[in-house]
Amino acid sequence: MIVTLDYESELPLYSQLYDEIVRGIADGSLTSGDSLPSVRSLAGDLSINLHTVNKTYQRLKQEGYVQIHRQKGAVVQPLGSVPATPEFRAMMSRQLRSLAAESVCRSMEEEEFVEQCRSAYRSLKGEDPS
C-alpha cells in the first residue's frame, strides 16, 4: 500500500500519514494482521522525522486502528473493531459542518454536497460511487 505525503502542505505530516493509513485500512489496502513498517524504516523511506512516524503510530494505537507489539511492531486491527464512539461522531459532525459551511458559501447545491460525500464513502467500500 503506497502512501504519499506533501512536504509543502499546510496539513502536518503526521496528520497526512495518519489519514493515509486510515484510508488504507478503510479501502482494504491494509488488512487485519498486516504489520506496518518499523518507525525507523518508514521514517527513512518517507524522509521524515522518527518522531513524526512515532506520533502517527501512537495516535493510530489510541484510536484502536493498530496494536503495538514488541516484536511485530504496529499491527493493523480488524475492520470494524473500532466503534463509532460519541467522540468520533462529534468530531465527524464538526468536520462536516466546516465542509458544509464552505459549500454553502460557494453556492454548492445540497444534492451535489451529499453526492460527493456518498461517492467518497462508497469508493472506500469498493462500491460503485453512483
Binding site: I2, V3, T4, E8, S35, P37, S41, L42, I48
Partner: peptide, 12 residues
Amino acid sequence: ESRGAADLTIRS
C-alpha cells in the same frame, strides 16, 4: 518534487 511516497507493505 515536493512530495514523498513509500510502500507500507513492501517488506512484509
